[in-house]
Design a binder for these strands. Structure first.
Lengths: 224, 224, 224, 224
DNA sequence: CATGAATGAGTCTTCATTCAT
DNA sequence: AATGAATGAAGACTCATTCAT
């Protein structure tokens, strides 16, 4: 009867509340994984971190498994958003686009202790848990396709007969993965600036004529 | 009862037996981690895999924690042995030594499904378990030092002002870690041959004058 | 807010609405017990079955316990109504009255999958839950008294010195309970028609002179 | 080496110990079901009753489900043993055999508070738990076949054209089930002696010429 | 009236660890 | 040396119940 009067509001509020709770729980999950590791992350550590009861996590995610999977997705969404906007905002030059996409991997929003720890934890378990592997595959495939496409247009980079667009993209992704690992496992041996320089040097070696431009984007050949 | 009868048994025999059991259990641990993942590896899966009773693992390793740590060490010992002998056996040329050391990372004895799975699992948990992290650090430090030293001698490689011995070593190690990850996570996207070609291309780009030599060691620049 | 608007709503309407909701919830409870069993019947299965929210069941019944007890009562009320009207409508002859009362136990409204499943579930738990036991006792006592009274008047049936009114009533009730169990547990071994024939044979054996009359009411002595 | 010296002994002991523990746990399960009902029987109530830790129940039965199923089987084995030996020991006369088999259902070892409570609890859940139903079916089928066979030979009992061997067996089984229920639900209304008399009267009515013999086996037509 | 979010005690189950033999 | 029975502390998950809206 008076439903109309209150229409929209309560439902929206409810939906918003649910979204908020889910985010709250996912953040707490990330916190726990970063702090205790994936294997020591329990519904207890998560719900305590979120300041909620154990039941809520189940209420919103049904499963621990689902909670973890959603956490992984959430993380990938953030990453995807970062590289996508980086590419979009890059100057309209093929090499710049590639630099932007690779540079996104070293963006502060992605390449930080929290994200690296999370990513590494999931990778370690991906082979044993098909759901994780599938999520990784999906997002990685998208990322890979876009990078190959950009490399194809950056003809200067693959002018050298050694490289093809595909192999170059693969090399860049491999370099990124390696850096993420090293930054995570031995942060004292490699930090973000060192990572940028490494990629910069690599691309600079490939494309000597643009070395200055690359240096400007990635950081120079300073001490490392 | 019959202890007295066996009392005279030489200590060596006992020690050997113990060493054998330990190896047996470590291998079973690796099997389990490869098959079920680290988080699903229990003393039960290990002892069952070893064909022994539940108690033995504790008897020989005291802890599950210790068993895992010893497994990690065992694995690193194998790896260290491989790259050490590869360097030793390489022709007496600085660049050849570097190629040998990097090539060891792609050696069949190291770069196989089993090792990659194991390594990845431990990395994922390393940050959360100091014991693992410490083991990784120790062995990685040794490996790193040797590689830097070799790079310093391979002056041709760092003739280009872009690279220093240290940054080059870091780049190579990073590339290796990245390859291991990709071979593990997306084996259909990168296999061992593709990995060799990738490193080959990378070094070939750095040192155009030795490109043929590098190709010969690492595999050519075929399609990838 | 709109409480004032509805304030004038007659109490009857509210009471009727409540009665409707209670019936709705009880029916859903029965559905759930029939489908999932008593032990797997939760407030969630009930409220979902009723198409209502979780809270309602508590609102109207205060307890899960009470909801179940009310469900049991509801069921007994239905049964009582059936045998009472059967007796009332039976021809004015003592034997006919007994036949009618026993026949009611095989009436389609009582002797169906749904009722049998429900009854059985409650019996299984009755001993452990005093509230259930008490409800069963109350209604069974009433039923028993009436049946004994009718048997006393049906002198023909107990002419045989073997039987007394009480023992005959007990035998009939026992037979009914047994049939209900067997129809529930092994429906392929006994259906309603077989049940009627069984009772018919039993009474026919007791009272050969009225065998035809009994057959007419209960079904003949066909194959079984 | 010295295995031979200790041979046989430890293994036998171990097997015996396991059998003993299983029996101990099953008895505790029965105790709990009789006392608290099936739905309130938890691994906690069982292991506490057995004076053991929760883990043992799982160790020996793997599951709560399996523990319950084994309990049901154990109970049926006892019952089967009783009626089988009763039939075997009965005089070599068809009617006597039938009387013995039906009488077994009223044997003190079977027809006691404990057994009845147990049986009833399982029946109540049988429909919802296929495993229970299957166990019941298996043992009931055996019992039914034997009873039909005996009835076929007891030609006197089915001389009356009303009854066939099958329908008579069905009637007897139904009577038994009904008695068990009533003894369980309303023990004040029917005890074991009353049950024996009821069956006695029923068979006596069927076979007037043997009434004395039946009375002697089942108890006379005393007060009931 | 009615909703459904939130709680927390309790259940089953797993598993590292202990210990008698 | 080796076994495997036994323990008990978590862990994930369920569910009756409460309560703000």
């Amino acid at each position: 009867m008076t439903v109309k009067a209150a229409a929209g509001r309560p439902r929206r509020e409810r939906t918003e509340n649910a979204a908020m709770r889910r985010r709250q729980l996912i953040e707490a999950t990330i916190d726990s994984i970063v702090e205790h590791g994936l294997s020591a992350t329990t519904l207890a550590t998560v719900s305590e971190g979120a300041g909620l009861s154990q039941g809520v996590a189940v209420f919103y995610f049904k499963n621990k498994q689902t909670l973890l999977a959603e956490t992984l997705k959430y993380h990938y969404e953030e990453y995807t958003e970062v590289w996508r906007s980086a590419v979009a905002e890059a100057p309209d030059d093929p090499v710049e686009k590639v630099l932007a996409m690779v540079g996104a991997d070293l963006d502060e929003r992605i390449c930080n202790r929290r994200h690296l720890a999370l990513w590494n934890s999931f990778w370690g378990e991906a082979k044993a848990r098909p759901i994780f592997a599938q999520i990784c595959d999906t997002y990685d495939a998208l990322h890979g396709e876009v990078l190959v496409a950009l490399c194809e247009q950056a003809e200067d980079l693959i002018a050298d007969s050694t490289w093809t667009a595909k192999s170059l993209a693969e090399a860049l992704v491999t370099l990124t993965d390696g850096m993420w690992i090293r930054m995570h496992v031995t942060p004292e041996a490699m930090d973000k600036a060192a990572g940028r320089r490494l990629v910069g040097r690599f691309l600079g070696t490939l494309l000597p004529s643009r070395r200055d431009q690359i240096s400007a984007r990635m950081g120079g050949a300073q001490e490392s």
